[in-house]
């Protein structure tokens, strides 16, 4: 399968934080959920991919092209939503059309105004009068209106109510239907990713600790709930992390079936992305 985005050994050092050899690949026609707690390095990774921040080590290829050497060409085909970064709020949504039609060669004014109508966004009101959710929808409309092939979205659903989130998720789902496009989507709302993501990439403290298809994750990973005495009998290499609660222990296991066989366990709970995040970050080894 051809990759639309390849990140290889991306490293970036700040005082007190470091991106450590980030690598992942997003095949065409797929949506990748990029998860991790606040400060884990999601936005730094996204900004590096987009060359918003420079001086990083490593290689980023988009549409098979180097993101620095072919920056202009690549960016014509990328739609971007950045967390809390957008047009000055003194502007009107219709101004964005006036500006962007001279920024992107493929800007489609009709499509942009269609999105505004679909999202119930008045085009003649200053952005500063918009609610947080409306601003987010406006950012999404602007990111989609030049017929991009790759969407890079940092927290695109934050601030949206469940109905708007569903609307937006459906748009992303439609977007990848032609199999030539791709979406990299960072989000804290893991339930959204469970609905649409084909791949999950998990970053923690500047390191990728997991990058797999969602199906693999859901089929293979699981949570074993047991008593403390049962937990003591489990080999360390058979679980990734564990967490003790008042009444039981929760073990994150990488291979449900093997664990079942080895320890004669009948049921292992299916894992949600939220459980996975919490156990990976807060669990102990």
């Amino acid at each position: 399968m051809e990759n639309i985005l390849e990140v290889k050994k991306l490293s970036k050092k700040y005082t007190g934080f470091e991106l450590k050899n980030i690598s992942f690949e997003l095949p065409k026609g797929m949506i990748m959920g990029f998860i991790g707690e606040n400060g884990a390095g999601k936005t730094t990774t996204i900004k590096s991919i987009l060359n918003i921040i420079g001086n990083y080590k490593g290689e980023v290829k988009i549409f098979g092209l180097d993101n620095k050497k072919n920056e202009r060409e690549i960016k014509e085909d990328i739609g971007v939503v950045l967390d809390d970064m957008f047009f000055p709020e003194i502007l009107l949504p219709k101004d964005i059309n006036t500006i962007m039609k001279d920024v992107y060669k493929n800007w489609d004014s009709d499509l942009y105004f269609k999105y505004l109508r679909d999202f119930n966004l008045p085009k003649d009101k200053q952005i500063k009068t918009y609610s947080k959710g409306m601003r987010k929808k406006l950012e999404i409309a602007a990111s989609l209106s030049h017929h991009p092939k790759l969407l890079i979205l940092d927290e695109p659903t934050s601030g949206l109510d469940p109905i708007a989130r569903n609307e937006v998720i459906d748009i992303f789902r439609d977007f990848i239907q032609n199999e030539e496009c791709g979406v990299l989507l960072s989000s804290h709302i893991t339930s959204d990713l469970e609905h649409i993501a084909d791949y999950i990439t998990f970053i923690n403290d500047g390191e990728i600790i997991l990058s797999k298809t969602k199906d693999e994750l859901i089929e293979q990973y699981g949570i074993v709930k047991c008593t403390e005495s049962e937990f003591k009998k489990v080999d360390k290499q058979d679980y990734i992390k564990y967490k003790k609660t008042k009444y039981e222990c929760e073990l994150l296991v990488e291979n449900k079936n093997e664990f079942k066989k080895k320890y004669n366990v009948n049921t292992i709970d299916k894992i949600s992305l939220e459980d996975l995040m919490v156990l990976m970050v807060k669990g102990e080894k």
Binding site: K47, L50, N51, I52, E71, R72, K75, E76, I78, V80, L82, D84, M85, F86, F87, P88, E89, I90, V103, Y104, I152
Partner: peptide, 17 residues
């Protein structure tokens, strides 16, 4: 206004921004 709305990060994501 550019600074308040963090426009500069966004403009750097645009072609030749």
């Amino acid at each position: 206004y550019d600074s308040y709305n963090k426009w500069d990060a966004y403009v750097c994501s645009l072609p030749d921004g």
